[in-house]
Amino acid sequence: MLVIQDHQPATGPRDLLGDAALAGVLIGHYQAVQLRQLAAYARDTEGDEFAYLEVATQLHISDRAARCRLKFARTLVDRLPQTLVALDQGWIEEY
Rank of each mutant, 00 (worst) to 15 (best):
residue 45 T to Q: 07
residue 64 R to I: 14
residue 48 D to F: 01
residue 75 T to A: 05
residue 50 F to K: 13
residue 19 D to Q: 14
residue 5 Q to S: 13
residue 48 D to P: 15
residue 11 T to W: 04
residue 13 P to S: 14
residue 26 L to C: 10
residue 50 F to G: 05
residue 54 E to Y: 02
residue 7 H to Q: 14
residue 64 R to M: 10
residue 86 A to I: 04
residue 49 E to G: 11
residue 86 A to E: 12
residue 78 D to K: 02
residue 19 D to P: 00
residue 37 Q to I: 15
residue 90 G to E: 00
residue 87 L to Y: 10
residue 1 M to I: 06
residue 59 L to T: 01
residue 18 G to Q: 06
residue 68 C to G: 07
residue 83 T to G: 03
residue 59 L to R: 11
residue 53 L to I: 11
residue 20 A to M: 11
residue 11 T to K: 08
residue 18 G to W: 02
residue 22 L to E: 15
residue 73 A to M: 05
residue 13 P to I: 07
residue 42 A to V: 01
residue 62 S to Y: 03
residue 7 H to P: 08
residue 85 V to R: 12
residue 10 A to D: 00
residue 47 G to V: 02
residue 10 A to S: 13
residue 69 R to E: 15
residue 38 L to V: 05
residue 42 A to N: 02
residue 8 Q to T: 14
residue 38 L to M: 08
residue 95 Y to K: 11
residue 10 A to N: 02
residue 89 Q to D: 15
residue 37 Q to R: 13
residue 87 L to T: 06
residue 78 D to W: 06
residue 19 D to L: 09
residue 8 Q to M: 10
residue 94 E to M: 09
residue 82 Q to H: 10
residue 69 R to H: 12
residue 11 T to F: 03
residue 23 A to E: 09
residue 17 L to Q: 12
residue 60 H to K: 11
residue 78 D to F: 04
residue 88 D to G: 04
residue 90 G to P: 06
residue 35 L to K: 03
residue 74 R to C: 04
residue 53 L to G: 05
residue 8 Q to L: 11
residue 92 I to M: 08
residue 43 R to W: 11
residue 38 L to P: 09
residue 34 Q to G: 15
residue 40 A to C: 03
residue 38 L to K: 04
residue 79 R to T: 10
residue 62 S to K: 00
residue 8 Q to A: 15
residue 95 Y to Q: 11
residue 23 A to L: 13
residue 7 H to W: 03
residue 90 G to L: 03
residue 51 A to I: 00
residue 49 E to M: 04
residue 12 G to R: 00
residue 28 G to Q: 07
residue 62 S to A: 03
residue 92 I to V: 15
residue 81 P to I: 01
residue 88 D to R: 14
residue 88 D to Y: 01
residue 73 A to P: 05
residue 60 H to T: 10
residue 34 Q to P: 07
residue 66 A to R: 00
residue 75 T to Q: 09
residue 13 P to C: 09
residue 75 T to F: 01
residue 86 A to W: 08
residue 7 H to Y: 02
residue 76 L to D: 02
residue 49 E to A: 08
residue 6 D to W: 04
residue 66 A to H: 02
residue 72 F to T: 04
residue 54 E to N: 09
residue 31 Q to T: 08
residue 81 P to H: 02
residue 5 Q to G: 14
residue 31 Q to H: 14
residue 41 Y to W: 13
residue 74 R to I: 08
residue 66 A to T: 11
residue 73 A to E: 04
residue 11 T to L: 07
residue 12 G to N: 15
residue 78 D to C: 02
residue 69 R to N: 08
residue 79 R to I: 00
residue 9 P to C: 06
residue 20 A to V: 08
residue 83 T to W: 03
residue 9 P to S: 13
residue 85 V to S: 09
residue 63 D to N: 14
residue 3 V to W: 05
residue 68 C to S: 14
residue 4 I to E: 14
residue 90 G to I: 01
residue 57 T to I: 02
residue 41 Y to M: 05
residue 85 V to Y: 01
residue 22 L to C: 07
residue 94 E to K: 06
residue 76 L to Q: 01
residue 89 Q to H: 12
residue 54 E to P: 09
residue 30 Y to W: 13
residue 63 D to Q: 10
residue 34 Q to D: 12
residue 66 A to N: 08
residue 7 H to N: 14
residue 89 Q to P: 00
residue 3 V to C: 04
residue 77 V to L: 05
residue 57 T to G: 07
